[in-house]
């Protein structure tokens, strides 16, 4: 038995608590990346190498710009926290699969620099960085961002979508003709939401659920996205109340309109499973940093996103409203938090 004969001070003196729960920020972020990978893989399966190339380019753009700005500011590199990877992947998933790569890179750079580092890096961003990048390219390249290509094109693994390889500042090659040649059946180039809005055609909800419709790379399979979200919830790395509130907000608002006039307005199920709503609810609205921390704040924030999404989709000039709804709710988050402070235990 080794006995200590002489008293010596114990060096490492800290204050309580001395134990902590496991997941640290990098661990959480890494798991979000894991959870995104199946969604990415499915998107590559649907759209082929163009989608893959886009993901690689946006992610690299995010990582490199984060590294560059950290270097410029003389700060320690924040790459190990993995949050830039999430931004890159999410960004790619919100873009059309044939989006020109150089525009994707630009979106990544803008998202990280304007959406994140301008505010002081992780923890300080007011908006979801991926959506900031996406909003930028939406405004800058309105045509490219609404050019959709069909899923499951026969040559998707051997050939890029023509627009993918567009040179910077050149008009991308038109894809309409290409789309017609590769599509399995008559492809109109419109997403389910556009079909609903402009032509009054409803795509079957089951197609949306399993995800074989046109759309941005990641907004196609609601089921897969839900499963990936469930993984994060099960690992205690995502707050289930957030996506639940977004979906509930969408459903309630859509239901109201549907009840008013079932012929004009789509069903709540269509609203929930179409477009980027599921991706937005599970992976973007739940960006912890830009959402409230208070219990009621979280619920209101989610409901607000759902409500705004439906309103924009039905009455706005755009077919898809999730992105602006989330950005708006991000901005409202501090306000929501300020009037939903929890009631202190024991206060009457």
């Amino acid at each position: 038995m080794a006995k200590h004969q002489h008293a010596h001070p114990v060096v490492d003196l800290r204050t309580s608590p001395y134990i902590r729960r496991a997941p640290s920020v990098p661990q959480i972020m890494r798991n979000v990346v894991y959870a995104l990978l199946p969604v990415c893989a499915f998107s590559v399966y649907l759209f082929g190498i163009s989608a893959l190339a886009l993901m690689i380019v946006t992610t690299l753009a995010c990582l490199l710009s984060e590294q560059f700005f950290c270097r410029m500011a003389g700060k320690k590199s924040t790459l190990p926290d993995f949050s830039a990877v999430i931004t890159g992947l999410l960004l790619a998933l919100t873009l059309p699969p044939g989006f020109p790569l150089w525009m994707g890179a630009l979106a990544g750079i803008i998202g990280i620099s304007m959406g994140k580092l301008l505010f002081g890096g992780i923890g300080y961003n007011v908006f979801n960085p991926a959506l900031v990048g996406r909003a930028f390219v939406q405004a800058a390249f309105p045509v490219a961002i609404s050019t959709w290509t069909p899923t499951l094109a026969a040559n998707r693994f051997s050939e890029f979508i023509p627009s993918t390889l567009a040179l910077p500042f050149m008009t991308p090659a038109p894809t309409a003709e290409w789309s017609q040649t590769v599509a399995i059946d008559g492809f109109t180039g419109a997403t389910p939401l556009a079909l609903m809005k402009f032509e009054g055609v409803m795509v079957r909800t089951s197609d949306l659920f399993f995800g074989t419709t046109a759309g941005s790379a990641g907004e196609t399979s609601a089921l897969l996205i839900l499963l990936c979200g469930a993984y994060l919830v099960a690992r205690n790395m995502m707050d289930w109340r957030l996506p639940a509130a977004v979906i509930a907000g969408t459903a309630i608002c859509a239901e109201c309109f549907y009840l008013l006039d079932p012929d004009t307005y789509p069903t709540p199920l269509f609203m929930i499973f179409s477009g980027g709503l599921m991706l937005g609810a599970v992976f973007m609205a739940s960006d912890m940093v830009a959402s409230p921390v208070t219990p009621w704040g979280i619920v209101l924030y989610g409901l607000l996103i759902g409500l705004l999404t439906v309103l924009i989709r039905l009455f706005g000039g755009l077919t898809e409203g999730v992105m602006y709804a989330i950005l708006f709710a991000n901005a409202a988050s501090p306000l929501l938090e300020s009037f939903t402070q929890p009631k202190v235990f024991g206060d009457q």
């Binding site: 134990i19 890096g121 923890g123 707050d239 912890m288 959402s291 921390v293 219990p295 235990f345």
Partner: peptide, 26 residues
Amino acid sequence: RATPNRNVQPCIKCAMCVEACPIHLN
């Protein structure tokens, strides 16, 4: 079994502390 000092990072507003606090503080 003591958790070593780990890198302190900015608050990511994950709300885990709010959910843990028995006194319902923020």
